[in-house]
């Protein structure tokens, strides 16, 4: 089982390299992916290895190069379009929502769009309101897209290949705050199922349902809860659209309690959707109402103490669950 210590950044880079080696139709394009080496050094040296036809620096034209990615996918290529950060993604939202997401259905099944868009997201680097977005729910709202969230090293390393094999547009959210984090990458795993959520830790007392940066936070919380005698199951949604109801409901059926954690602000979020589905489909499995710990309903401020207060922290997860179970 044991693997080598590896950063999240290196996981993404290995995935990109593997994809470029595996299929001539694959190319990477985005702002600063080539000569700069990627805004977060994810694609460092890939230009030297694969050349400018496969690692394409683009101008600051998010609508333009995402649209070009859609066209190239229609034309038989397998583009990986990097939007530097989620914060710039709304400049390309028309292309994503009106073209990538609609073409297959609107054309009566004639034109599918095998496009992968990667973008880094997350809160926690004191970048203030315009550079600290958790817009997974916004994209997860759109039928026609597959929305993935790479909350672990394993997914950062192994999500890209199945995403590229998917005939439809896939958006992968990556997390800037995890880039330097080192973890052991299990050598036994070399593929992930991008249709299924994943139980990251088994437990019988409560289901901690989360995604993205919530996964390691919840795993840390589960460690602490274990010391207090609470066996928390950590479920990584991983696929935010279409949601994997089966795995979510199976976990709730086992633990009879659900606690959902996400960085995105609370209203009209992934957690509100998951909560609704549990209520609709598993009401009688529940021993207590579904609870949520979400981002504050506020533009993310710059100062560290306020930024921290705006998103769920592991200590809050632990104390909320202890309270919940005491009252159960």
């Amino acid at each position: 089982m044991a693997g080598n210590l590896i950063t999240y950044r290196e996981c993404i880079k290995q995935a990109l390299r593997e994809a470029l080696q595996a299929d001539e139709r694959v190319f990477v394009m985005g702002e600063d992916v080539g000569r700069y080496g990627g805004a977060f050094a994810v694609s460092k040296n890939l230009l030297q290895e694969f050349g400018p036809e496969r690692i394409m620096d683009t101008p600051l034209s998010e609508a333009g190069f995402v649209g070009a990615g859609i066209g190239a996918a229609l034309g038989g290529m397998r583009p990986i379009v990097e939007i530097m950060t989620v914060n710039f993604s709304l400049l390309a939202l028309d292309q994503i929502a009106n073209n990538a997401a609609t073409l297959l259905h609107m054309s009566g099944g004639q034109f599918n769009v095998p496009l992968v868009i990667r973008m880094s997201a997350g809160i926690g680097r004191q970048l203030a309101a315009q550079h600290s977005h958790s817009w997974e729910p916004l994209f997860a709202h759109l039928p026609g897209l597959r929305i993935l969230s790479a909350g672990t090293h394993e997914d950062a390393r192994h999500m890209l290949a199945p995403a590229l094999a998917d005939p439809d547009p896939v958006i992968i959210f990556e997390y800037t705050s995890l880039l330097n984090l080192e973890k052991e990458l299990p050598t036994s795993i070399n593929q992930v199922d991008i249709h299924k959520a994943k139980v990251r830790r088994e437990g019988k007392d409560i289901s901690l349902i989360t995604y993205g940066t919530g996964v390691y936070k919840c795993l840390a919380a589960a460690d602490e809860l274990a010391a207090a005698g609470i066996a928390a199951e950590v479920l990584d949604l991983r696929v935010l659209r279409p949601l994997d109801d089966e795995t979510i409901l199976a976990s709730v059926a086992k633990t009879n309690r659900a606690f959902i954690v996400e960085d995105a602000s609370r209203s009209v979020s992934v957690s509100s959707e998951v909560s609704a589905r549990i209520m609709e489909k598993s009401f009688y499995d529940l021993d207590a109402p579904v609870q949520r710990l979400c981002g504050a309903e506020v533009p993310i401020p710059y100062p560290k103490h306020l930024e921290d207060a705006a998103v769920p922290q592991p200590a809050q997860i632990v104390s909320a669950i202890k309270t919940l179970l005491q009252h159960a």
Binding site: E53, A68, G71, G75, N99
Partner: peptide, 16 residues
């Protein structure tokens, strides 16, 4: 909205 897609189709033709 379709102009960039046209560029992409052209790009695919060029690459292929």
């Amino acid at each position: 909205g379709h102009l960039a897609m046209a560029v992409g189709l052209g790009l695919a033709d060029k690459k292929m």
